[in-house]
Design a protein around this nucleic acid. Structure first.
Length: 257
DNA sequence: ATGTCAGGTCATACCTGA
């Protein structure tokens, strides 16, 4: 079972790129972030034609998340984090596919920091951590996939120097993410490739892609009960190099059935 | 400090968020 996460940075503006990638890699599940489309502007027909059922939480202009399943409809279980009924930002959607619970998340960027956006990021991380702990406690088979907007360690960035003041590298962001992992989640890519530089995002600025000035911020976390099923993982880097690409590359795992 | 995207609007130029 192939499960992928892809921050598409505009699901309509980059639809040809998304469809091309789905066709090429045929993921069984695809978690999408940054739809940048209101609920009724999600390209449902094109996604269906590509062979995917979908649930999504749209929002005008910003945010927006979707969960795609090849050949079936995801059974929606949530469209926001528990205890967050007042969250107007579409950043979480969750569904069951083939006996797995898949959480698709778009963690707040948090810039500029300090400030209200950074406070919101940290608060959101606390909500996520609380909920993730519940899932672990319930021993549910879960994949939490998405754009975490956290650079976990200095090894997950080409060079931290010019990003030291960025919300993605702040000690508070990193500490919250570290606490999440410590609940028992397996960071799939780092688990399989502990010593390799891995990036999933290259800024549009500063010629970042050509310089391979990347960050690893898109993660797939496995709950303890499914960690032993992990067989392979990777980043579809070539997608980032294409005409009209998102600034993120799709990131995927392969689980034993 | 700079730079580049997308999507939106009291729109064909500028704003925000990233």
């Amino acid at each position: 079972m192939r499960i992928a996460t892809f921050n598409v940075n505009g699901v309509n503006g980059r639809l040809p790129r998304l469809l091309e990638w789905l066709e090429e890699t045929q993921p069984d599940v695809a978690c999408l972030q940054e739809l940048k489309a209101p609920q009724d502007k999600f390209p449902k027909a094109a996604i269906e034609k590509a062979g995917y059922g979908a649930i999504w939480a749209g929002q005008s202009r910003w945010n927006g998340v979707a969960l795609l399943a090849r050949g079936c409809e995801p059974v929606e279980t949530r469209r926001c984090l528990p205890g967050y009924p007042s969250d107007e930002q579409a950043r979480y959607i969750e569904g069951a596919v083939n006996g797995l619970l898949i959480g698709c998340l778009y963690l707040p960027n948090g810039n500029p920091q300090p400030g209200p956006k950074f406070d919101y990021k940290l608060a959101w991380m606390e909500r996520l951590n609380d909920y993730a702990a519940e899932l672990i406690e319930a021993n549910v088979p879960v994949v939490l996939a998405g754009d975490y907007n956290v650079v976990a360690t200095d090894f997950d960035i080409y060079n931290p120097r010019s990003w030291l003041k960025d919300a993605l590298l702040q000690p508070e962001s990193r500490e919250a993410y570290t606490r999440l992992l410590a609940q028992g989640w397996t960071d799939a890519l780092r688990h399989l490739f502990p010593d390799e530089p891995i990036y999933t995002f290259w800024d549009y600025f500063r010629n970042a892609w050509a310089r391979n000035a990347g960050l690893r911020i898109d993660h797939l976390l496995l709950s303890p009960s499914i960690a032993s099923r992990l067989r392979d993982a990777g980043v579809d880097r070539e997608v980032r190099g294409r005409e009209g690409a998102s600034d993120h590359a799709p990131t995927w795992i392969l689980l034993d059935d």
